[in-house]
Amino acid sequence: MTRSDPMAVLLEWQAAAQEAGDPQAGLMALSTISPAGEPSVRTVSVKLLESRRIGFVTDSRSPKARDIAACPRVAVMFTWLSLRRQVTVRGDAAPMSTAEAEREFRRRSRPAQLGAWASHQSSPIPDRGVLDSAMAAAARRWPEGEAVPVPPYWAGYVITPTEIEFLQAGRPDRLHDRRRHRLIGDAWVGQALGS
């Protein structure tokens, strides 16, 4: 494991997970804190993974967006069970640029674009039929061959990591390899951890 640049290691591990066909390769668990101090965690798709940034997209009316507005400190966890690897990242989330968020919307499949219009994410509904009806209405509104516009509430967030912890499991003695890196000033400082 490269010790001086943990984001480079994260990128390598992510690439290895994709190459191995791990079903979690494009996902991460996102933890936020609500304005009332309640923790929440959910799985989101990784839309941006670069040397200094991790990004995802969502409905700006969603609970996660409200949580981030109140407390931008978040944590994400990548878990690749096939490789027995896990990476936990802590950092600060900020809105993605409008251009980046729109680019991510354009990369979605047409059904996923229509779905963004059909659902008010995490809002209560009486039953599944409400979603199906809203999806059918969106498909009629923007028929096949017509571009689906970006919803006004579409948003993306970028996490700037300040702490990254790696876990490589799989040892029979369960004394797994763990290492934490903290950003101190402009430099990452690494430390091995007990298992």
Score class of each variant (00 low, 15 high):
residue 2 T to F: 09
residue 2 T to E: 06
residue 2 T to I: 09
residue 4 S to G: 03
residue 7 M to E: 04
residue 11 L to R: 08
residue 11 L to G: 11
residue 11 L to S: 10
residue 12 E to R: 13
residue 14 Q to N: 10
residue 14 Q to T: 07
residue 15 A to Q: 14
residue 16 A to F: 06
residue 16 A to T: 15
residue 17 A to P: 02
residue 20 A to E: 08
residue 23 P to Q: 05
residue 23 P to I: 08
residue 24 Q to A: 14
residue 25 A to E: 04
residue 25 A to S: 13
residue 28 M to K: 01
residue 29 A to P: 00
residue 30 L to E: 04
residue 30 L to H: 07
residue 31 S to F: 04
residue 32 T to E: 04
residue 33 I to N: 05
residue 33 I to P: 00
residue 34 S to N: 09
residue 38 E to L: 07
residue 39 P to Q: 11
residue 40 S to R: 14
residue 40 S to Q: 13
residue 41 V to D: 12
residue 41 V to G: 11
residue 42 R to F: 12
residue 43 T to P: 02
residue 44 V to L: 10
residue 45 S to K: 11
residue 45 S to R: 13
residue 47 K to G: 10
residue 47 K to H: 13
residue 49 L to Y: 04
residue 49 L to D: 02
residue 51 S to Q: 11
residue 52 R to F: 13
residue 52 R to A: 14
residue 54 I to K: 05
residue 54 I to W: 14
residue 55 G to A: 14
residue 58 T to I: 08
residue 58 T to N: 06
residue 61 R to A: 05
residue 62 S to E: 00
residue 62 S to C: 02
residue 65 A to W: 03
residue 66 R to Y: 11
residue 69 A to T: 06
residue 73 R to C: 10
residue 74 V to G: 10
residue 74 V to F: 08
residue 76 V to S: 04
residue 76 V to F: 06
residue 78 F to K: 14
residue 79 T to G: 04
residue 81 L to I: 09
residue 81 L to N: 12
residue 82 S to K: 09
residue 85 R to H: 00
residue 88 T to H: 01
residue 88 T to Q: 03
residue 89 V to R: 01
residue 91 G to P: 14
residue 92 D to M: 15
residue 93 A to Q: 11
residue 94 A to Y: 02
residue 95 P to C: 04
residue 96 M to Y: 03
residue 100 E to D: 15
residue 104 E to W: 05
residue 104 E to P: 02
residue 107 R to P: 07
residue 108 R to N: 05
residue 108 R to P: 01
residue 111 P to C: 04
residue 113 Q to I: 09
residue 113 Q to K: 09
residue 115 G to A: 07
residue 116 A to N: 00
residue 119 S to H: 04
residue 122 S to R: 09
residue 123 S to P: 00
residue 124 P to T: 01
residue 128 R to M: 12
residue 129 G to C: 02
residue 132 D to Y: 08
residue 132 D to G: 11
residue 133 S to G: 13
residue 136 A to M: 09
residue 140 R to D: 13
residue 140 R to E: 08
residue 143 P to I: 05
residue 144 E to L: 15
residue 144 E to N: 15
residue 144 E to Q: 15
residue 145 G to Y: 02
residue 150 V to L: 09
residue 152 P to E: 09
residue 153 Y to T: 07
residue 154 W to R: 04
residue 157 Y to V: 03
residue 158 V to H: 07
residue 161 P to F: 10
residue 161 P to W: 08
residue 163 E to D: 12
residue 165 E to H: 00
residue 166 F to D: 06
residue 166 F to S: 12
residue 167 L to H: 03
residue 168 Q to L: 08
residue 168 Q to E: 12
residue 170 G to Q: 07
residue 171 R to E: 10
residue 171 R to D: 09
residue 173 D to P: 03
residue 173 D to S: 05
residue 174 R to S: 11
residue 174 R to F: 13
residue 176 H to W: 06
residue 176 H to P: 07
residue 178 R to C: 12
residue 179 R to T: 01
residue 179 R to Y: 01
residue 180 R to Y: 11
residue 181 H to I: 02
residue 182 R to V: 15
residue 185 G to W: 06
residue 185 G to V: 04
residue 187 A to G: 14
residue 187 A to V: 11
residue 187 A to N: 14
residue 188 W to I: 11
residue 188 W to A: 08
residue 190 G to D: 05
residue 192 A to K: 11
residue 192 A to I: 14
